[in-house]
Nucleic acid binder design. Structure first.
Length: 558
RNA sequence: UGACCGAUGGUGUAAUGGUAACACAGGAGAUUUUGGUUCUCUUAUUCAGGGUUCGAAUCCUUGUCGGUCAACCA
């Protein structure tokens, strides 16, 4: 045994629970988790945490994970969502053992309900929604019993069958568990088990007009599938006594529920309800708008599954509320993209400055070989055209530069990335004093890779050959909201939307962009991805995340 | 004025009665044909009071603060 050579890795509380169960031989050493989305919206980064946990834990302990759609509310659920959810999970890199639907269990659930009725533990209640709400009492006051609470088993059975048969209109009756109206736990005050909804279900069609509530579907589905560890978020803690009560009374497989703190990120919202609202009110272009924290959104933006998985692993899991800096996620995105992104030069400026290299022969063009990724030489190199006239960003020139400005300025030497060292000799302006052209001279023996000039320059800038510059559209994204903590913000969350979360800029790219597939690093600018809006006529790029920019940070401080 | 859950650097997460650590962020420097990357160094932490103990972030107790729960949603 190499026990002592093993690194002591600390366990999170879920790993501890599982290891204890395994040690005690619970469930015969079997670990089966489930990921249980409701198909009423797109998956977001909060779900990513849950997916990584459920699938990750199972994998870690030689177990498996079921994908189960919690489709018990036909009015909000759609097949479109089912498809997107499956695509997102696969994209994240996980495979489920079995694809299940709570709706598959409707017949079984109906039998469970009858069993409860027969045991005198459930009853049909004719009270209205308002009356039931009033009966529930408040967190500080006990509830009162429904006048229908003590119907006979026979009457309950008859009524429940007739509910199923469609004899009653929506809202006229419900099936309730008979637990304890005085319980300090609101969820134990005779919770609703079934309600009448004459609605078309995305899978069962019009077969049913009564549908089980979450509390009578989720735990029972877990049990039917013999899920060993049912992992959910903190707000379900008060449901756990009911979860256990139903399993005990039904005498079915004892799945167990464990709760962790959901993911919250700065400058964004993470609830399907709010995200739906952003989509419906047109604040974003859709569920996959690159500013959205949905998986389809961040995918389109250029985040990688690897980065998201690393992030989820690194943030850990615990039971205390948290608000994680969105910058932490961005760190993992940069870390991964730095290793794989193809470097290209793009002048990110609709109004670039033309640089004329006065001592370079007119009409001559040469091809320079530039590495695609200095982090990974195996990625090879590409050819980049260079000639007498090139384009550079206006930000890379200053007529009266501050100390430590290493870019173009009158008399300054800079290296053109992958090309030559140039000196700015003359600034040409128009009648308004706007700089229209820089006249520079190049040092022929400073060619990249074969530099014999002996010159040392402090700055290197990117550029594109004027004659070959490809006009492209680049979409720059900023945080979706103006405030860090939306949970602290008063009023409507839409009031805090950042009006500058999207800016579109026309830019000029080196010709190679058209033939290289992303992800890209636009040199000195950031990581970018090709957007799905691209056409043969026009390439559209999304800024995934910017590069760290210590120069800009320093400037800001001043 | 109930029940339940929680409280460790700026943000997350460890330390499971025995030297409070790791990542990010912040700061300083080195390297660099990306003001990127990489490397080195560095600032900063146990909610409060009481108790148990040789020894407490950890156990007990009281309090404080934060969160959750009163959908025919999940």
């Amino acid at each position: 045994m190499t026990e002592e050579s093993k690194e002591v890795k600390s366990l999170n509380f879920l790993e501890e629970i599982i290891e204890t169960d395994l040690r005690e031989g619970k469930n015969g050493g079997r670990v089966l988790t489930r990921f249980p989305p409701e198909p009423n919206g797109y998956l977001h980064l909060g779900h990513a945490k849950s997916i990584c946990l459920n699938f990750g834990l199972a994998k870690q302990y030689n177990g498996q994970t079921n994908l189960r759609f919690d489709d018990t509310n036909p009015v909000t659920e759609e097949t479109e969502y089912v498809d997107s959810i499956k695509a997102d999970i696969n994209w994240l890199g996980f495979q489920w053992a079995s694809e299940r639907y709570a709706s598959d269990y409707f017949p079984q659930l109906f039998q469970f309900a009858k069993k409860l009725i027969q045991a005198g533990l459930a009853y049909v209640d004719d009270s209205s929604a308002e009356e039931i709400a009033a009966q529930k009492g408040t967190p500080t006051e006990p509830g009162t019993e429904s006048p229908y609470r003590n119907r006979s088993v026979e009457e309950n059975l008859d009524l429940f069958e007739r509910m199923k048969a469609g004899e009653f209109p929506d809202g006229s009756r419900v099936l309730r568990a008979k637990v304890d109206m005085a319980s300090p736990n609101m969820h134990m005050r005779d919770p609703l088990l079934y309600r009448i909804k004459h609605a078309h279900h995305h899978r069962t069609g019009d077969e049913w007009c009564i549908y089980p509530m979450y509390d009578f579907a989720h735990g029972q589905s877990d049990s039917i599938e013999e899920i060993t560890h049912s992992i959910c978020t903190l707000e379900f803690i008060p449901h756990r006594p009911l979860y256990d009560w139903l399993i005990e009374k039904l005498e079915i497989f004892p799945s167990h529920q464990y709760e962790f703190a959901r993911l919250n990120l700065t400058y964004t919202v993470m609830s399907k309800r709010k995200l739906l609202k952003l989509v419906n009110e047109g604040h974003v272009s859709g569920w996959d708008d690159p500013r959205m924290p949905t998986l389809s959104g961040v995918r389109r933006r250029g985040y990688t599954p690897e980065a998201i998985r690393d992030f989820c692993e690194r943030i850990g899991v615990a039971k205390r509320d948290n608000l994680i800096d969105i910058g932490y996620l961005e760190f993992f995105v940069r870390e991964h993209l730095n290793k794989i992104a193809a470097r290209v030069m793009v002048v990110l400026d609709p109004d670039p400055i033309k640089v004329v290299i006065t001592n370079y022969p007119e009409g001559q063009t040469e091809s320079l070989s530039i590495e695609n990724n200095p982090e990974n030489p195996e990625d090879g190199s590409r050819l980049v055209p260079f000639s007498r006239e090139i384009l550079v960003e206006r930000d890379d020139f200053m007529e009266n530069p501050p100390k430590k400005f290493f870019r173009l300025a009158p008399g300054n030497l800079v290296r053109l990335k992958g090309a030559y060292i140039i000196r700015c000799d003359e600034v040409v302006k128009d009648a308004d004093g706007k700089v229209t052209e820089l006249r520079c001279s190049y040092v022929p023996e400073s060619k990249s890779g074969e530099d014999t000039s002996g010159l040392k320059v402090q700055g290197t800038i990117h550029w594109v050959n004027a004659a070959d510059a490809v006009p492209v559209e680049v979409r720059l994204y900023d945080r979706l909201f103006k405030v860090e903590d939306l949970s602290e913000a008063e009023g409507d969350f839409q009031d805090y939307l950042n009006p500058d979360s999207l800016s579109v800029v026309q830019a000029f790219a080196e010709p190679a962009v058209a033939s290289i597939k992303g992800p890209y690093q636009f040199l000195r600018k950031g990581y970018f991805s090709l957007d799905t809006d691209s056409t043969d006529q026009k390439l559209v790029f999304n800024r995934t995340v910017g590069l760290k920019d210590s120069w800009a940070k320093d400037q800001k401080k001043k």
